[in-house]
Computed example of a mutant assay.
Amino acid sequence: MTIRQIAKYADLHGKSVFISGGGSGIGADLVRAFHTQGAATFFVDIDRSASDALCEELKKETGSSPDFQVCDVTDLESLAAALDRIADLTGRLDVLVNNAANDTRYLSAEVDEANFDASIAVNLKHQFFAATRAFAHMRRRGSGSIINFGSVAPRLGIRNLAVYSTCKSAVQGLTRSLAREFGEFGVRVNAIVPGAIMTERQRQLWITEEIEKENQKAQCLPRTLVADDIAQMALFLASDVSWGCTSQNFIVDAGITG
């Protein structure tokens, strides 16, 4: 995939960036974007095959590859160890991107307690614990950017996503509360709220050509949103050019009016 260089953020060069769920989908474009900016890019994922392929692709395109580690973000000890490892290797942790999620759809009547807890773990719980662990490293430098991930799903009331939407609704409160706590130490906390992003997973499982056209009709901008649209917002929030932005939800949905 050709990487778009819409903007070059000089301050991102050399910064230490940690991305969860970076092996595919939106996460893969986040990894591509930060790596191409010259950031020291580290990512975790449970899919070794996809992640190794991404690293090889970037090595061919740029001459170097990001750092990948297999990690299940619901294993909080492993997640904390991965974050600590990056800080130890680079001597710093500048940016955390809490991207990992699972939007598998379930009829609410079929959700049991185990399924509910698993969804909370992968869509919300790890964002909190990754943020607090990252903050422990960032506060020593007096700066840092934490980027959480929400969704437009709660606002739109999408069917069969009740637990997922509950988690993504909670991200707004999590982001604002952490921004208040961390701000006095120079650490910013924001959330990106993606709209209908046409990843390979979405097209394979849920989005037909007809649904995609319906989505575009609901948007102010009648175009297909792709993962790189989210990556470009993440670059902005990670860079010092957004130093005045914290405790905010940045919606990237092409203006859904429905």
Results as ranks from 00 to 15, higher is better:
Arg4Ile: 09
Lys8Met: 01
Ala10His: 15
His13Met: 03
Ser16Tyr: 01
Phe18Tyr: 02
Ser20Ile: 03
Gly23His: 09
Ser24Ala: 07
Gly27Lys: 10
Ala28Asp: 04
Asp29His: 04
Asp29Met: 06
Arg32Pro: 03
Gly38Leu: 04
Phe42His: 13
Asp47Thr: 13
Arg48His: 13
Ala50Trp: 12
Ser51Leu: 06
Asp52Met: 15
Asp52Val: 12
Leu54Cys: 11
Glu56Ala: 12
Leu58Asp: 03
Lys60Tyr: 02
Gly63Thr: 12
Ser64Trp: 00
Val70Tyr: 00
Val70Trp: 01
Asp75His: 15
Ala80Ile: 08
Ala82Met: 07
Ala82Pro: 00
Asp88Phe: 02
Asp88Glu: 14
Leu89Cys: 02
Leu93Ser: 03
Leu93Trp: 04
Leu93Asn: 08
Asp94Asn: 11
Val95Pro: 04
Ala100Ser: 11
Thr104Phe: 03
Arg105Gly: 01
Tyr106Ile: 14
Tyr106Asp: 13
Leu107Trp: 14
Leu107Asp: 10
Ser108Cys: 11
Ser108Val: 15
Asp117Ile: 14
Asp117Gly: 15
Ser119Ile: 15
Asn123Ser: 11
His126Arg: 12
Gln127Ser: 07
Phe129Leu: 13
Phe129Ala: 11
Arg133Asn: 14
His137Pro: 07
Met138Phe: 04
Arg141Lys: 15
Ile147Ser: 09
Asn148Glu: 10
Asn148Tyr: 12
Phe149His: 09
Gly150Trp: 08
Val152Asp: 00
Pro154Trp: 14
Pro154Thr: 07
Ile158Cys: 01
Asn160His: 08
Leu161Trp: 06
Ala162Met: 06
Ala170Gln: 06
Ala170Ile: 06
Thr175Val: 02
Arg176Gly: 01
Ala179Thr: 03
Arg180Val: 03
Arg180Gly: 02
Arg180Ala: 09
Phe185Leu: 06
Gly186Ile: 13
Val187Trp: 02
Val189Cys: 05
Ala191Tyr: 07
Ala196Cys: 00
Glu200Trp: 12
Arg201Leu: 00
Arg201Lys: 04
Gln204Ser: 05
Leu205Arg: 08
Trp206Ala: 03
Glu209Ser: 06
Glu210Arg: 13
Glu212Pro: 00
Lys213Val: 07
Glu214Ser: 12
Asn215Ile: 09
Pro222His: 14
Thr224Trp: 14
Asp228His: 10
Ile230Gln: 02
Leu235Val: 04
Leu237Lys: 10
Val241Asp: 13
Val241Trp: 04
Cys245Ala: 09
Asn249Val: 12
Phe250Asn: 00
Ala254Cys: 08
Gly255Glu: 14
Ile256Glu: 13
Thr257His: 06
Gly258Gln: 04
